[in-house]
Design a binder for these strands. Structure first.
Length: 226
DNA sequence: TAGGCCATCTGGTCCT
DNA sequence: AGGACCAGATGGCCTA
């Protein structure tokens, strides 16, 4: 159980510096490796198209039109009216995406340096946090914790390895306990909204319930994207 | 002032 | 044909 405690904390970047996850999330290791040409490279389709047309030019002798396929004629630019409506649709589409991002921002735990807590998460950070959050929840599910504790029939004696696992709060932070836990986890780290009056000790059943509710929010987010 | 983030416009491509 | 989606270009705003 200590193991889980540690794993959760580690996953959430709470083991060392709480700011580290934030830094880590914003410093994608691949990002550095990404060359400028990668970052600003043409998308595959365009590249393909460009290369194929380049080849034709470089060769000096354009591909023989074996299939008698004529080069696609460049379509006429959209009329002013259609351009306007297309722009409007695009704005609408982007607005939907941003709404979905807002929903996601509310759901993902925000582990950020204090001064950045009030700042709006960027889109990329939101996505990265969400990915971490999902992995963390998945890991918890893998351990069957939520499943076991959601099972009303299960007696406390039948889950020996879980009976000492609970969340305790000092009013400000939650501590995930096994027998001993050095790591203190704030409720917001789990994206769990806790009512202040019920603080004291929180069993895992209600914790998992809260997680389920948050997962429902994720569903809503996904529906927004689908 | 450079760099990051964002909104918007735009043209290309795919799908219905 | 028209809409959806995507990515590049551009300009504005903000911060270190």
């Amino acid at each position: 159980m200590i193991q889980l405690d540690n794993q959760l904390s580690e996953r959430l970047g709470l083991f060392s510096d709480p700011q580290s996850i934030y830094k880590d999330i914003n410093n994608n290791p691949n990002k550095e490796k990404q060359s400028k040409s990668d970052k600003y490279s043409l998308r595959p389709r365009s590249t393909r198209r460009k290369h194929s047309s380049d080849e034709e030019e470089y060769e000096g002798n354009p591909k023989p039109q074996t299939n008698n396929k004529k080069l696609k004629q460049k379509p006429a630019p959209l009329s002013k009216y259609r351009r306007k409506t297309a722009n409007a649709r695009e704005r609408c589409r982007m607005k939907e995406i941003n709404t979905a991002f807002e929903t996601l921002r509310k759901v993902v735990p925000q582990i950020a340096p204090q001064q950045q807590q009030n700042e709006k998460l960027t889109k990329i950070t939101t996505l990265r946090l969400a990915m971490r959050y999902i992995s963390t929840l998945s890991e918890a599910l893998d351990k069957n914790i939520c499943q076991v504790l959601n099972n009303q029939k299960m007696s406390s004696s039948s889950c020996d390895d879980l009976e000492s696992l609970f969340l305790e709060s000092d009013g400000e932070s939650l501590t995930l306990h096994s027998d001993v836990s050095e790591q203190s986890v704030t409720s917001s780290d789990f994206g769990v909204e806790l009512s202040s009056d019920s603080f004291g000790a929180m069993d895992f059943e209600s914790f998992s319930k809260d997680i389920s509710e948050n997962l429902t929010c994720f569903d809503a987010f996904l529906v927004n994207f689908s």
